[in-house]
């Protein structure tokens, strides 16, 4: 299944509209009217969220209208809303990259940043770049050491550490 551009437009409009509705609900709990000290806390977000919902509805309507029009008239080769939003091969590449990045975030939370960065860079150089695993891993390790020197030694900003660093005497 390929996602078409008008479908992506509709999906995005629904999400931004949903955000607006959520903000309206959140603001309504705080009071959107006038208190003794001027506008209540929910006043400003409430009206901003109404504008957001309105603009999202506009985008939604426009996406549907252009979709209907495109079905009736011959497509404009430069700007066809029926074009795929993500062709299949592109989707594969983007999904792979996203999956690796998500794995890196989870790895950072579990193993600490340095180990996760080494593994992530090493894996990517090995599986996607066609380098030998040990070359990738050493590139990753060099990068992790560089991060350590820049952040912890020079600027004294501690980064996230996992169970491995204390074993090496680094806290």
């Amino acid at each position: 299944m390929t996602v078409k551009r008008y479908q992506a437009e509709i999906g995005t409009a629904l999400v931004t509209g949903g955000l607006g509705v959520a903000a309206i609900i959140g603001a309504a709990e705080l009071g959107t009217g006038w208190g003794d000290h001027g506008p209540q806390a929910g006043y400003f977000p409430f009206w901003v969220a109404i504008v957001l919902v309105g603009a999202s509805l506009w985008n939604l309507g426009r996406a549907i209208v252009t979709h209907r029009q495109a079905l009736r008239t011959p497509p404009d080769p430069l700007d066809d809303p029926e074009d795929p939003f993500l062709p299949r091969d592109h989707l594969g590449r983007v999904a792979m990259f996203l999956a690796a990045m998500t794995a890196f975030v989870i790895g950072t939370l579990m193993l600490g940043l340095y180990v996760a960065a080494t593994l992530y860079i090493g894996w990517s150089a090995w599986r996607q770049g066609g380098f030998r695993p040990w070359i990738g891993l050493s590139l990753g390790a060099i990068f992790a050491v560089a991060l350590y020197v820049i952040f912890e030694v020079t600027f004294q900003i501690p980064l996230l550490k996992g169970p491995l660093e204390p074993l090496l005497g680094i806290y």
């Binding site: 890196f104 992530y120 860079i121 990517s124 150089a125 770049g129 980064l159």
Partner: peptide, 16 residues
Amino acid sequence: TIIGPMIVVICFVGAY
């Protein structure tokens, strides 16, 4: 394939 993941790491480090 090498520089991309490095940029990703820099972005996340920066955010942290």
